[in-house]
Design a protein around this nucleic acid. Sequence first.
DNA 1: CCTACCGATCGGTAGG
DNA 2: CCTACCGATCGGTAGG
Lengths: 210, 210
Amino acid sequence: MTDSTPPASPTPEPAARTRRDQIRDVAGRLFSERGYHATSMRDLAGELGMQGGSLYAHISSKEDLLVEIVQTAAGQFDAALLTLRADPLPADQKLREAMERHIRVVADNMESATVFFHEWKHLSPAAYARVTDWRDTIDAFYRDLVRQGIEEGTFRPDLDVKMSANLILSAVNWAYTWYRPGGRLTPRDVAERYAQMLLAGMRTPAQEAS
Amino acid sequence: MTDSTPPASPTPEPAARTRRDQIRDVAGRLFSERGYHATSMRDLAGELGMQGGSLYAHISSKEDLLVEIVQTAAGQFDAALLTLRADPLPADQKLREAMERHIRVVADNMESATVFFHEWKHLSPAAYARVTDWRDTIDAFYRDLVRQGIEEGTFRPDLDVKMSANLILSAVNWAYTWYRPGGRLTPRDVAERYAQMLLAGMRTPAQEAS
DNA sequence: CCTACCGATCGGTAGG
DNA sequence: CCTACCGATCGGTAGG
């Protein structure tokens, strides 16, 4: 055994993780555990072994941290879902895939997801508006998917498009309250169980397969 | 037209509404809009046309208000759901009824429900433990309902009991984020749409009716 | 990244 | 229910 091979990095980009990233990650954890307003900058600094005022060498305000956490989470949902829009899959398969990706984003980012769902109302007007726009986009994504299935004849023509999308979104979003990473269920397991139950209620009576 | 008939009371018990009740209700609204920690006692007092310190003639602490709001909400869920446990209905009908009642509690108490779901982590240990116990009770209620349906032969024997209960709870709880009282959908409408989709995925293939 | 500090605001109380 | 106040803590800054 020689030193010619550098040790494999334990995480993808360990060196690229700046102090700023650490601050954001710890903030995400504290905001998710205690809430944004109940987390003080001194709490945050203490977790990082520094004094409260020292944080401002790396960030410009507390709200910047919240904005970054929320926007990053929104970006991950977008990257996972919106790339599916142009996918030529049939609607039922696409829906199953979307649910799996959606749950995976929640499961892989439980803290950010919690902050995202609980604290976005505390954003300043500009960032707040971006989140409501994002929410409309995701709503439309799932509604379009349901409509696609109806047009393709896979989904019942009498489906209430909006309510179906609401039910799907309920299932995948609410996972932030109960999912435990490292437990017996992978995001794929959850998505498969959910999709099986939901698709049975959405498909035209003629169809039956998985 | 004479004055012999007293005017019908606009609300059930208008005279029984004490100043304390007003404080709790306004607190529920502010806590739901801004969050518990972001609502100051002076904000609350201002909405009621009084000074901050005057609140303490009626309440003993800010947390008392939170505890009362959360416990009242939990009590309404209990009153709506747990009375169904001994009901002799078949499981699918009972599930539909439970979902309708559950959504109705959310819909009729959007503010308290929001506080309940977002702020219970900020309770002191004793009240916090009561909420986690409550949550376990409601989880068990829905899981028992799914099990009952499997035993009765109405629901598929291969249903994942825990995941089915999770899906049901996702649907009824998430309503607090999107339901708008006074809109086109009554809680009954929502429950019917949801139950139709969910029950189709839970029933044994033999069955088909509503 | 620290020390020392700013004005503002917090939940709550005393005394009336 | 008000006035006046308490100590504690808040987010953020200056200067090093």
